[in-house]
Design a protein around this nucleic acid. Structure first.
Lengths: 192, 192
DNA sequence: ACGAGATCGAACCGATCGGTACGATCACGC
DNA sequence: GCGTGATCGTACCGATCGGTTCGATCTCGT
C-alpha cells in the first residue's frame, strides 16, 4: 500500500482530524476566538504538523468553510430529495431539517454567515456568497417545480426566510422559530 | 455655564466624537479589525482621553452598539409612523426604508447581528437580542393592527424576513432584494 | 493670574498571536 | 536494519494588542 490507512502516521487522517477539530472550535468560539497554539493543543497535534497540512491559518479557515458549505448544502439537498416530487413537500422537508438543526444544543447560527461577519476578507465573503447561491438554487428549483410565476423572485424570498430564521433562532432561541419559518415558507410558495 | 459648549475642551463632545468614529470604523472593519491605537489616530485623540471616557474597549463596544440599536429602532419606528394608520402601508414603509438602507454604499449588514457573530460575549449577544426584540415589537404591532389571527406568529415571520433580507442584501448585493422582501412581507401580512 | 482638569504624544508594559526552527522520536517501506 | 518522512515538544521570533504612565500643553472658570 502506498498510503498507510490504519496507522498513527497517516497524513490524510491527520489532515481530517485537524479539519474536524477546527470546524468545531471555529464554529463554537469564532475564527479569531481561538489561536493556532490552542487549536493544536485541543487536537493533540504540533504546530509543525498543522502548518505542513495548511499553508497558514487563513488557508485552514478557507478549507474549513469550504467543507462545511458542501456538507450543509448536501444535507439540505438530500432532505428535499427524500421528500418526493411534491414541491410543497420538498420545501417543508427543507424547513423541517432546519428546525431540527436549530434545536441542537451546539447550534450557533450559520457558520458561513458568521464567518463573513467576522472576516471581511474577500476570500471568506466569496465562500459565503457561493454558499447562499447554492441555497438559492435549491429553493428556486422548488419554486420552479411549483410552477410559480416568478421562480427567481420566490426563490429569493425563500432564501431570505431561511437565513432570517437561522439568525432569529440563534438570537432568540429555537422555540417556535422553525415552525413559523416553515409556515411562512409554504405560504410564500403557495401564494405565488 | 457649568459645561463649556463650544470650546475645544468639552468632554461631552469628545465622547461623542469617539462614539461617532468608533461606530463607523467598527461597522466597516469589524470589532476586532481595528485596534484602540489606530482608532485614536483616526479620531485625533490620545489613548488617555479615550480611556477616561470608556473603561475599556469592551465598554466602548457596548456603548457603540447600544447607541446604534436605539438609532436604528427609532429610524424604523419613525418610518412606520409616517406611513399613517394602514397596517399594510406601515409595513411597506418599513421595508421601503430597508431597501434604501441596502442601497447605501456603506451598507454592510446589521451592525448588531454582525457584532453578535464576532463577539460571543454574553454582553454583546444580549444587546443584539434586545435589538431584535424591538424589531419584533414593531412588526407584531403591525400584525395586530392588521387583525391577524396570530399577530405574534406573523410578527416573528416578518422579523425573519427582515433579518434574512439584510443578510442576503449584504452577501448578494442590494439589487432587487429590497423589493422582493417588501413583496413577501405584504404577502405574509395579508395572507394571515 | 492662578489652579483644575482635559488633552496630547510618546514611551512603556505584559500578554498573545501567527509562524518558524530544531532536535528527538516513531512508524513504515525497502 | 536502515532510511525516509511524519510527528512531537519546545523554544523562539517579530508584530500587534489592550491598557498604563508621565510630562507638557491647553482651556476655562474664578
Amino acid at each position: 500500500m502506498p498510503v498507510p490507512k490504519g496507522s498513527t502516521v497517516d497524513p490524510a487522517r491527520t489532515r481530517a482530524a485537524i479539519l474536524d477539530a477546527a470546524t468545531r472550535v471555529f464554529y463554537e468560539r469564532g475564527l479569531d476566538g481561538v489561536g493556532v497554539a490552542e487549536l493544536c493543543g485541543l487536537i493533540g497535534v504540533s504546530k509543525e504538523t498543522l502548518y505542513r497540512h495548511f499553508e497558514n491559518k487563513d488557508a485552514l479557515v478557507d478549507a474549513v468553510l469550504e467543507r462545511r458549505s458542501e456538507r450543509v448544502t448536501r444535507w439540505l439537498a438530500d432532505a428535499a430529495e427524500a421528500a418526493g416530487d411534491s414541491p410543497a413537500a420538498r420545501l417543508a422537508a427543507v424547513f423541517d431539517a432546519l428546525r431540527e438543526w436549530y434545536s441542537e444544543p451546539t447550534f450557533r447560527g450559520c457558520a458561513l454567515v458568521n464567518a463573513a461577519a467576522q472576516h471581511h476578507a474577500p476570500r471568506v465573503r466569496a465562500i459565503t456568497s457561493r454558499h447562499l447561491h447554492k441555497h438559492l438554487a435549491l429553493l428556486t428549483d422548488i419554486a420552479r417545480r411549483a410552477r410559480c410565476a416568478d421562480p427567481d423572485a420566490v426563490g429569493r424570498q425563500l432564501l431570505m426566510l431561511l437565513e432570517g430564521a437561522t439568525i432569529v433562532a440563534d438570537q432568540h432561541g429555537a422555540d417556535a422559530v422553525g415552525d413559523h419559518a416553515r409556515t411562512a415558507a409554504l405560504a410564500l410558495l403557495s401564494g405565488a
